[in-house]
Simulated scan of single mutants.
Amino acid sequence: MAHGSSSNIDGNLKSGVIDFIAGSLGGIAVVYVGQPLDTVKVKMQTFPQLYNGMYDCLKRTLKNDGFYRGLYAGTTPAIMANVAENSVLFAAYGYCQKFVCTLTETESVDQLSTLGNASAGFLAAFFSSFTLCPTELIKCQLQAMREVNLQGSQTTVR
């Protein structure tokens, strides 16, 4: 009996590690694909008065800061945030499904209802939010640094 439960623990650990790695790789891919649009979005949300739309913000960011420094500002914290968020999310989801199975007395995760899977997703997202929020703040500050510095230099002290 002990051998069977040890095998089950090893299988759960292996599954958790695979989910963690998959989430990490997914997080990296999301950042590299979406970072330029995210940078434009943050700049437009933070300083709507400075830009006449998305295209204007993109064009001016490229002109003033270049491709990498302009559109990929804040990439390192974004990667850290997305790797942490997705890896925790992926790893926690499997464990949260098992937890919901225990609460609902469902025999296996394959038999969970849509509400059961949604509950497991909610719980997993709750845990992943603790990794996302601090790094998201740093990323947004880096993305809007140029505009913040411009506004600071234009403010007159009375």
Rank of each mutant, 00 (worst) to 15 (best):
N86Y: 13
P48L: 06
P134N: 11
L115G: 00
N64P: 00
V31N: 03
C133T: 14
Q154Y: 01
N64Y: 05
N12L: 15
A22G: 02
S7I: 12
S129A: 14
Q97S: 06
A84I: 07
I21S: 06
L142G: 01
V109L: 01
F90P: 01
I18E: 10
F127C: 15
F90I: 02
L137A: 11
A84D: 02
F130H: 13
G16A: 14
T131M: 14
F130M: 12
A29K: 06
M1Q: 08
T39F: 07
K59M: 10
L58G: 01
L89E: 07
M54A: 13
A73Y: 04
S153V: 02
G70D: 09
V109F: 01
A92S: 15
L103A: 05
P36K: 05
D10F: 11
K98C: 08
I9T: 13
S108H: 12
G26Y: 05
Q151V: 07
F130R: 08
L132A: 15
G27W: 05
G66V: 06
Y72I: 09
G70L: 09
A125Q: 07
L132F: 14
V83S: 02
L25Q: 06
Q45A: 07
T114Q: 02
P48E: 08
T156V: 05
L123C: 14
Y32W: 14
D10W: 09
S129E: 12
L13P: 00
N12Q: 14
L37T: 10
V109Y: 00
S6M: 15
Q45N: 12
S87D: 03
P134C: 08
